[in-house]
Design a protein around this nucleic acid. Sequence first.
DNA 1: CGAAAATTTGACATGACTCAACTGGAGTGG
DNA 2: CCACTCCAGTTGAGTCATGTCAAATTTTCG
Lengths: 166, 166
Amino acid sequence: MSFLQIRTFKKGDYLLQAGKICSHKHFILEGLVKTSYLEDSGTERIVQFALENWWVLDWESFVHEKPATTSIQALEATRTLTIDKASLEDAYQKIPKLESLFRKITENWLIAVQRNKKYMMASSQVRYNTLVKSLPNIVQRVPQYMLASYLDITPEYLSELRKKHS
Amino acid sequence: MSFLQIRTFKKGDYLLQAGKICSHKHFILEGLVKTSYLEDSGTERIVQFALENWWVLDWESFVHEKPATTSIQALEATRTLTIDKASLEDAYQKIPKLESLFRKITENWLIAVQRNKKYMMASSQVRYNTLVKSLPNIVQRVPQYMLASYLDITPEYLSELRKKHS
DNA sequence: CGAAAATTTGACATGACTCAACTGGAGTGG
DNA sequence: CCACTCCAGTTGAGTCATGTCAAATTTTCG
């Protein structure tokens, strides 16, 4: 278990900065983080909110060891179980069960991304409702302009949606 | 290698029918298939075109052995390298390298789905251009109403886009 | 308390959809 | 070889969802 490490991040701290190489997988024990990237227009687009019991990393950067396109930032004080890539690969050699475990985790992650992609293609109203249902408290924990960024709508329009909905 | 099998499908044949359990991974040697599901409204939505050297399966059905929500159908005569789930899992036990290989394939698939999700959130015009660039010949090989379904726009609007573009 | 940031509101613009009509090519049968 | 049908694709009018921009209002926080 030497490849596991507990880390703590304060609100605003970066678990990963765009441009650097993502060499860790983080499992969130407590707290909330966002994964986001900068669009050509210069605005930030959030691609994932991750909270307790979720994994977070930049997959492309982690797997291919190239500069990350996303940043991962704590939105609340956060504690993670963090795994270093090099020692994880050592461990795979020694413990085949471990590789099997992470294969399955990856498979389930893939399924989740596909599901997420599917619902992100619905109307904004549906996307908003789904978000609220699938991440309870998210509305209280995250400012609206970030929800709008995640939902791929303008903050103004999200404001309208919320008015209609209530 | 006993878990590998070569199969052939005629145009219109199903590699998988929605409702059945997806118990195989197909690697396409030659041909073209589409993965699609039925929306509530009753219209078909295409989620993937897969051609030579791509894998195709319903992940959620395969991993959790539940009825598939998607159908996979050959759009052209297609030859595949097909892997049966049960024998694959046997093979994992015997050949740890194999599990490692498929873990990596899954990771790369995940990366591809994420990239795909990202570009599917761009404007229709960009989505169309990206599709044409990333799957050359797709415009010749697939009727426009299927491209429209994949791009999540109406055939009418795709027609307009093409006019503007040329 | 006051300044800065977040949210709401409203007027107007645009992207994309709906529906109906029309065009044009690919069979098909006489 | 023609007439007919069928289906994909196009065109156009009207509509709805969502975006843009600017201003007003509310909330947050030093």
